[in-house]
């Protein structure tokens, strides 16, 4: 899809991100086309989660330029760590959703409210509209019968499925998955991956996925990017990366995780 004529939806141009003395992303260049499903793999600390967190405006970056659908993350007259007004950041966020490693559901809200709350508060939907939307999404993730439960009453896999429904309820153009199955017991991983796999068939939804599930990455992604030390050192179709990696670091990494 990269050779598509449409302009990229997401574009990192020379982005540098530092935590104190540590440089997490170093002159980072990366583009994602609309509707593309990209998986980011690589050793921990290689900066792949940081890419998602920057896109979600959870972390600022210091240098370079990042655009989403033509919108610059940083404003020319912007101040603060993000060099942008909160209003501007909220504009950007309205296009992006995120699924976290540790689910981060709101413990004091029922499943239904977890999914419907943001559409009501942020999008201004009526409670009835939002709940109808939430029910559809809970059906999608197979949890309609749990709608009145609280997060603490659900298994990890169920919580993560609710979290996916919650993110989808905001109708984002881009959905970010930050190691969505890493906090789960092995027997619960499958149900979450099944939901993500269904989403991968959505033509319009752009997905960025950080994961250690290599087989799954190969199945769902259009493109796989291998990260090392704050840069993408190799990328290509899943076939290319998994069957014929060219970069020695990629070979090393794949050998270590695929065993």
């Amino acid at each position: 899809m990269t050779e598509n004529a449409t302009p990229p939806l997401i574009q990192f141009a020379g982005v540098t991100k530092r935590f104190g003395a540590l440089t997490v992303l170093d002159d980072f260049n990366f583009e994602v086309a609309p509707g593309e499903k990209v998986t980011l793999i690589g050793p921990s600390g290689s900066g792949k989660s940081t890419v998602l967190r920057i896109l979600m405006t959870l972390e600022p970056f210091q240098e370079g330029r990042l655009t989403l659908a033509g919108m610059d993350y940083q404003e020319p007259a912007g101040t603060g760590p993000f060099k942008a007004s909160e209003r501007h950041l909220r504009d950007i966020r309205s296009h992006v959703g995120m699924v976290f490693q540790s689910f981060n559901l709101f413990p004091h809200m029922s499943v239904m409210r977890n999914v419907a709350e943001a559409p009501v508060r942020v999008l201004g939907l009526s409670r009835a509209e939002a709940e109808a939307r939430a029910l559809d999404l809970l059906a999608l993730v197979g949890l309609v019968d749990k709608k009145d439960h609280f997060p603490s009453q659900l298994s990890g896999g169920q919580q993560q499925r609710v979290a996916i429904a919650r993110a989808l309820a905001m109708r984002p153009r881009v959905l970010l998955f930050d190691e969505p199955t890493s906090a789960l017991d092995p027997q619960l991983v499958g149900e979450v991956l099944a939901v993500i796999r269904d989403l991968a068939h959505e033509h319009d939804l752009t997905m960025l996925l950080v994961t250690h599930e290599m087989r799954f990455a190969r199945e769902v992604s259009d493109r796989v990017c291998f990260f090392d030390k704050g840069r993408i050192c190799e990328q290509g179709s899943p076939e290319a990366i998994f069957t014929a990696p060219s970069h020695p670091r990629t070979c090393e990494f794949l050998a270590s995780v695929l065993g």
């Binding site: 405006t57 909160e86 966020r93 559901l105 709350e117």
Partner: peptide, 19 residues
Amino acid sequence: QQFEAARALNFGRMHTLIH
């Protein structure tokens, strides 16, 4: 993480605090 989740859902500061 609760703040981050609220942020990812685009809650404003007031909403995050109150809800």
